[in-house]
């Protein structure tokens, strides 16, 4: 047997056991679909922070609405519900969610829960400032500004259109100083405006 053939046969003999026992591709894991079992992950840390099981109360519409009114204190600027169901690395929002549930268990309604949060974390915990005191300015200034500017604009327009109407009624010649060709051109161009 030539050394080349021996080399190939030895290589094949060495590879066979490996090929026969080949499991999933390196770094892959077979899911246990439909088995009802929950296989362990090869690298649990790579799948993020371990999660608690979701409960019915996590989906409670009333709790959601309360949490939408309160900001997470982690600095993300999201509300508690959105943060806890989005930023799965945040440790603040799950804790705040538990606080909301605890306050609800104490029999507090939405406004009382929100008030308790404001007392504990300050006004900054509200997603929108309460419409009272100086905060009212926050809500009404844009509307007032638009109304004010709109009113001034309307007043000016009405005054000017009245002046024009009076001038027309006084019988001023509508146009003067133009040749017949120029007037025809003007009429033609004005017609274009209306098209």
């Amino acid at each position: 047997m030539t050394s080349r053939r021996r080399f190939l046969l030895q290589g094949l003999a060495g590879a066979l056991p490996v090929l026969l026992h080949a499991g999933p591709a390196a770094g892959q894991q077979q899911p246990l679909a439909g088995q009802g079992a929950a296989g362990e992950l090869r690298d649990p840390a790579a799948a993020g922070r371990p999660r608690d099981r979701a409960t019915e109360r996590d989906n409670d519409e009333y709790i959601k609405q309360v949490e939408h009114r309160l900001q997470c204190t982690c600095g993300c600027t999201l509300d508690i519900y959105t943060c806890r169901t989005t930023d799965f690395t945040c440790t603040f929002s799950p804790a705040l969610h538990k606080e909301v549930l605890a306050l609800h268990d104490e029999g507090k309604d939405a406004d009382a829960i929100v008030a308790a949060f404001v007392e504990k974390y300050g006004e900054k915990v509200l997603m929108a400032p309460k419409p009272e005191g100086f905060n009212i300015a926050g809500y009404i200034v844009p509307g007032i500004a638009i109304l004010l500017v709109g009113s001034v604009m309307a007043a000016i327009m009405v005054r000017r259109s009245r002046v024009m109407a009076v001038a027309s009624a006084a019988g001023d010649p509508p146009v003067s100083g133009g040749s017949a060709d120029e007037m025809e051109r003007l009429r033609r161009e004005l017609r274009e405006f209306d098209e």
Partner: peptide
């Protein structure tokens, strides 16, 4: 969102 106790749950 993540897994429970490092499993496929």
């Amino acid at each position: 969102a993540g897994s429970v106790e490092g499993t496929e749950e």
